[in-house]
Design a protein around this nucleic acid. Structure first.
Lengths: 123, 123
DNA sequence: CAGAATCCTGTGAGATACTG
DNA sequence: CAGTATCTCACAGGATTCTG
């Protein structure tokens, strides 16, 4: 695959104190915090759901990475893909309930970043 | 530098609708979602503040990456570093108020990931 | 329009060794 | 103990081309 990569042997994940290396948590964290993961999730939560819309809204993403990131999330069950066999084709993506849960937890973070980025980068 | 890298010309960042490429938001997002960024921030928010503690808690992180990630956050003003010129040396890291704000917004996400990672990776 | 397939590269990251 | 200094490289990510 591309963005996603396997983790050796799954073990339960903890939030408190320790951050084990060999843990599913790391895998999921890696997917979500992959270069375009956060942006894709948020774009889906907020606006356009069509391929072209996503590609336009997430400035700078290549077609390859958009496809790759979407497929990773699809495999993870965070995104649902709905293709129509028309010509020209139309494909819609939407967050699954699980994906929406994740995106919701990303919003406060992005809002905060948007508010403070200028000041942080400026220094 | 190492983890951090410059962005060309700063412009204001938006959360709604569009995600401009050339924007401080991207830089900060990249720092925080860098491979070890989230883990370092959370470890600092929850537990040990000494170098050795961090190195032990964040399993798998190399010394280089721990140093690099900490220095990036220090430059961003998210982490404060306090070294004591004793022998052996003792260095403490702590979140700045800004850093604590960021970490707080990471907690719900990590809790969610910890709860759902197994199910996601299993599929 | 929405990708898949190829080829290619920068750099984020690891391993190892050394030091104040 | 808490780092720095090098060397090295896999692989995430980009550019380009092609297609149903």
């Amino acid at each position: 695959m591309d963005v996603s990569f396997a983790v050796s042997r799954p073990r339960p994940g903890l939030t408190s104190g320790k951050y084990p290396a060999d843990c599913p948590t790391r895998t999921v964290l890696t997917h979500i915090t992959s270069r375009w993961g956060v942006l894709v999730l948020l774009a889906l939560e907020q606006g356009g759901h069509r391929w072209g819309e996503l590609h336009r809204e997430i400035e700078g993403i290549s077609e390859k990475m958009l496809a790759s990131t979407l497929r990773t999330f699809e495999a993870d069950g965070l995104v649902h893909r709905e293709a129509q066999a028309t010509i020209p084709p139309r494909v819609d993506y939407e967050l699954t309930p699980l994906g929406r849960e994740a995106a919701e937890r990303l919003l406060p973070l992005m809002d905060w970043i948007a508010d403070n980025a200028e000041a942080i980068v400026a220094r």
